[in-house]
Each structure stands twice: as C-alpha cells, then as structure tokens.
C-alpha cells in the first residue's frame, strides 16, 4: 500500500471528524447558551409575587403574570382534551385498521399538516370561531392548539402501536375477543406509556406556541373568566412584553420566558426518562 496516500486518507478522516465535532458543539452550544441567557436574565425578575399577582396597571412597576400562567394551563389543557383523543384514535385507526389508499392519505396529510405554519392554523381557528362569534376567546385558542397537536399525537400513537408485537394481538384474538376490544383493552395499554409521553410532548410543544394565539386567545390583562372571553397566555404575554417600550416589562418577559422554558424542559426530560427502556 502507498504510505503517503494512506497518510493522506488518515488526515482527511481526522479533519472530517473534527469538522463534524465542531458543528455538533456549535449546535449544542447554541441551545445551552440560549438556556443560560434566559436563565440569567429571567432569574432576577422571578419572585413569589411575580408568580401569584395580576399584572400592574400600565406604567406602574411590579405586578405578576398569574393570569397568564392560569390562562396557559386552561388553553393548553382544553387543547389536550380535544386534540389528544382525536389524535390517539386516529393513530389507532392507522396502526390497527389502516391499509391501502385511505390510510396513506391520512398519514400523508398528517405529516404535511405537521409542517403547516402554526400561524396558518391560527388563521383557520380565527375564521372558524373568532370571526363568526365576533369575539376572541380561550376556546378558539384551544382549538388552534388542538389542531396543531392532532398530527403529532396521531403519528406518535401509530409508531408506538406498531412496536407492539403481533404475537400479543394474536394471543388476545385467540381468546375469542372482538377486534375492537383487543385493540382498546390489550394493544393500546401495552403501548400506553409511549402514547402518553407522546401526548405530553405534544402538550409541551403547543404550550410554547405564540403565533396562533395572537388573534384567537388574544391576551387579557385581568383575571380571566370562562372559556368564551379573551385570555392571557404565557407565550403571548412574553411577546407583548418583549416588544413593549418599558424596561420593567422587558424584565418580566425574560422571567416569563424562564418559567415557560422550565415547564417545557421539565416535561421533555420527564418524558424521556419515563420512556427509557428498562433493564427487564
């Protein structure tokens, strides 16, 4: 073998390895930098009263974001109530019954929907609910978020159901159990942990969505009431505060971002730990 040529191949190998490593560090580094920066900027403004008080009137210092936290919980919770069942059941359809053209169409549509900008989904919710009702509302925000969740939950459910071994399905069918009962009471529980974590991750994903909420949930500086009135949400509050001209609001936006990020991060980490294959 040609020694010089071999040396060059080794050099190229080392160089490319270094290049990929540097890129990996940049990718991970940016994420860490963002986390650290938000943590640093936000930590100083987070306090007990920030978490538990309503916003102060414009121009006055202090005040909190409790209405946004409750609002986010309400909108995201309602979105989950609508989006998770629809997503899970469609996923069950695809994995257990779906064959042929229709199944392909559903799967393809879900995948493409997954990439449709959230603002377009928000626009749809606006046209569907806000415009006819002549009113911004928590409900319309929840519907927008639910529409975003469905394709995510659907595909995740399908993937996890496909991991259930066919032998389990056969065992249940051989006991003389109708197909739908086999699916709902044996197959779905077997994949339950994966389906549930997928749903949680989808919730965390939409909890950070701002764009579809601007003209659906709209925001509200006061304690909210009901589902049919405008409501404040964390991402939207961060947005309004961040583009405002007040220094005080900027700090509060950082703090709110920290809280939102902590929530999303916590859900993600919990989900991954929960899903980790166990030693059995």
């Amino acid at each position: 073998m040609n020694e010089a040529y071999y040396a060059r191949r080794k050099r190229v190998n080392a160089l490319m390895f270094a290049l990929t490593a540097v890129c990996a560090v940049i990718s991970a580094g940016t994420l860490l930098a963002i986390l650290a920066y938000i943590g640093w900027k936000g930590a100083s403004a987070v306090s007990w009263s920030f978490l538990t008080k309503l916003p102060a009137p414009v121009g006055e210092p202090g005040g909190g974001i409790v209405n946004s936290i409750i609002g986010s919980a309400k909108v995201v919770g309602l979105a989950g109530l609508i989006g998770i069942p629809v997503g899970v059941l469609s996923g069950v359809y695809l994995a257990e019954y779906g064959r042929g053209k229709l199944a392909f169409a559903v799967r393809y549509a879900a995948d493409v929907m997954n990439g449709v900008p959230s603002i377009v989904v928000g626009l749809f919710a606006y046209a569907l609910i806000v415009h006819p009702m002549k009113k911004f509302s928590a409900l319309s925000g929840a519907v927008a978020l639910a529409l975003i969740m469905v394709p995510i939950v659907l595909r995740n459910t399908e993937e996890f159901l496909r991991l259930v071994p066919g032998t389990i399905r056969e065992a249940a069918l051989a006991l003389g159990v109708p197909r739908w009962k086999v699916t709902m009471m044996v197959i779905v529980p077997t994949a339950g942990r994966g389906i549930l974590t997928g749903a949680l991750l989808a919730l965390a994903r939409v909890a950070g969505e701002t764009a579809p909420l601007i003209f659906t949930a709209f925001g509200n500086r006061f304690a909210d009431d009901g589902l049919l009135n405008p409501i404040a949400t964390l991402p939207h509050t961060i947005f309004t505060y961040a583009i405002s001209p007040y220094e005080d609001w900027h700090n509060q936006a950082w703090a709110a971002a920290l809280i939102l990020m902590a929530f999303v991060l916590a859900v993600n980490v919990t989900a991954r730990l929960w899903l980790r294959p166990r030693s059995t």
Partner: peptide, 23 residues
C-alpha cells in the same frame, strides 16, 4: 381581513408543497 387570509393561503400553499415533497 380577506387580504390577510389570502396571505395565509399563499403561505400554506407554499409550505404544503415544500412539506409534501420532503415527506
């Protein structure tokens, strides 16, 4: 309002085409 919805339509059409091809 209609103009904005039309922008949304264009945006959606573009992303659907891009995503459809990618998928």
């Amino acid at each position: 309002l209609s103009a904005l919805v039309a922008i949304g339509l264009v945006l959606m059409a573009v992303t659907v085409v891009v995503n459809g091809a990618a998928r």
